[in-house]
Design a protein around this nucleic acid. Structure first.
Lengths: 193, 193
DNA sequence: CGCCGAGTTGAACTGAATCAAGAAACGTGG
DNA sequence: CCACGTTTCTTGATTCAGTTCAACTCGGCG
């Protein structure tokens, strides 16, 4: 059932005991979302971390009625408004399925129980938080130091999946520009080669 | 000696044992840096996390000979190229003292020993990583969704210390703009009131 | 067949980058 | 404590990339 997730855990924390893993499995629920469906809503406390078994998901927030896209997540990545999850404050971000998506969801209470019952599990929490941190670090560097055009080029190289499976107007938002600007950037790039 | 740091730990993980704290203290070294001095260099593996007792520090990286500033850190905050520290890869970021600075430094090996000797300490590691993550989340939102002018206004409100103690050309870099542009933004803001 | 959303293209506008020059602040040594 | 040189900050002119608004194309789908 949770094979892909187990594999992921094996890599992350190979020393984790079978007991802990078994207990962890029990905390998970399987969810299915249709394309366009909301997985987690802005404004209320987010209680889940999702491991994506299948599909694509986007994390965004609404400012002046405009969706700003923070990230896309694909199969075998985990996602969630980690900020709200950690701080127990209403979420600043919403999560939505871009394709039909299947996730394994971990509830906040389940995780806390894991920390309590298996102190060794704190290590997993640390590694996950560190991983999230590293991911954000890259994104930050990209937003601070690169021009939109470079950002797009690098995105295509680093995550070709995004360019292939995500509509352009969402990618534009992710890059921090308008769809029109992205269309022109693409045109420029094509004529480069 | 490490009173301010102890206070910080009390807040972060009140349940941490006296034993663990004593052991932790032994891992720390005190360092003094002159204004402009390099604390941690780009290109080599970063082995320390610094808790700043006094002074200001900046984290930057060099791209095409230009310093891009990722963040400033003040008294009673900790800093370090956390990415390099975690991944054990050469640092993408350098750290430099903006004022004369005193830090308490924790070496990588010391931290690993803490994790090994006091598994409860993993929790501290997790909370620190989560805190770093949250900080970056805000920075990300600012870079993605705000215009430079708004970023500056918000910075002045959120961290007045920066505007007061950090030279403008460094702030400009932090905001992702040129010193000239910041100078004009400031002019516009003054005439607003 | 006609509609609708995504993507493209054009024209006018805007805010920041760049280049260049001058003014102000800073610190260093005499 | 002052004078000098360097660094930081400001101002101006020009250029450029992205925004905005509007019109149009294309493809899928009722």
């Amino acid at each position: 059932m949770f094979d892909s997730l187990k594999l992921y855990f094996r890599k992350l924390a190979p020393e984790l005991s079978q007991d802990a893993w078994n207990a962890f499995q029990k905390c998970l629920t399987v969810k299915r979302y249709k394309k366009g469906e909301t997985i987690s809503e802005e404004g209320r406390v987010n209680n889940i971390v999702c491991f994506i078994e299948e599909g694509i998901v986007m994390v965004y927030n609404l400012i002046d009625g405009k969706k700003n896209i923070y990230n896309f997540f694909f199969e075998h990545e985990y996602t969630g408004d980690y900020e709200s999850f950690l701080t127990r404050k209403p979420a600043n971000y919403g999560i939505e399925a871009i394709e039909d998506t299947i996730t394994f969801n971990l509830h906040y209470d389940g995780l806390q129980k894991m920390y309590a019952d298996f102190p060794e599990f704190e290590r997993v929490g640390r590694l996950v938080a560190e991983g999230q941190f590293l991911r954000l670090t890259e994104r930050n560097a990209s937003l601070l130091a690169e021009k939109p055009e470079d950002r797009y080029e690098n995105l295509v190289v680093a995550k070709p999946q995004v360019a292939q499976r995500v509509p352009q107007y969402l990618i534009a938002s992710y890059l921090g520009i308008t769809p029109e600007a992205l269309s022109r950037i693409r045109k420029r790039l094509v004529s480069k080669f």
